[in-house]
């Protein structure tokens, strides 16, 4: 080491002596110039590489990432509002449908009620008519029966009178007497 240096240094070191013994190497002024030159070269290169290429690139990466994340978050938010909107529309459609179904049911029910009422009424009218006809028939039958009863009564009365008196009464008086007895 010292022997290597001694041949080339400018002469502050004693040739042949141990180099570190007379000058502590970091304080050896002969070593300053080459270190400064190479430090300037290397650090200058590093500074240029970092400031011109590496740091803008990393900044770009970080910026792109944060932009990406925020845009993704934005689109997620957008999709969320869309989903909420769709949900709202769905609820709307559902409640509309429910209301529609309800009115439809109501209408059908009303319709059916009306129809069945009409049918019932028609049926009732028919039945009433039948009832009236039947009553009329019954009344006719009764009247004719009653007329028959008078005839029978008259015949019976004239027969009774003939049996009792031996002579047949005239029809007019028998009729009068029968109707008088029926009235009474």
């Amino acid at each position: 080491m010292a022997n290597d240096n001694s041949g080339h240094t400018t002469g502050t070191q004693v040739p042949g002596a141990a180099g570190h013994a007379d000058v502590f190497p970091p304080f050896d002024a002969n070593n300053f110039a080459p270190q400064l030159v190479w430090l300037a070269l290397t650090f200058g290169a590093l500074y240029l590489l970092m400031s011109k290429i590496a740091l803008p690139r990393v900044a770009g990466i970080l910026d792109a990432r944060s932009t990406k994340i925020s845009s993704e978050l934005d689109s997620a938010k957008h999709i969320q509002t869309q989903a909420a909107e769709a949900g709202r529309v769905y609820e709307q459609v559902l409640s509309d449908g429910k209301a529609h179904a309800q009115t439809l049911t109501q209408n059908t029910q009303n319709q059916m009620t009306i129809e069945s009422d009409a049918k019932r009424r028609a049926l009732e009218a028919e039945l009433n008519a039948k009832l009236v006809a039947a009553e009329k028939q019954i009344a006719g039958i009764r009247d004719s029966a009653m007329a028959n009863v008078e005839d029978i009564a008259r015949g019976a009365a004239s027969a009774i009178v003939k049996q009792l008196t031996g002579k047949s009464p005239d029809d007019d008086s028998v009729a009068k007497a029968v109707s008088a007895a029926r009235q009474g």
Binding site: N30, A33, P34, Q35, W38, L41, T42, F43, L46
Partner: peptide, 16 residues
Amino acid sequence: VDASFTNASVFMIVVT
């Protein structure tokens, strides 16, 4: 100016 390539230069380059 003494611009010799030294062991320090080697490691400056390695670090860079």
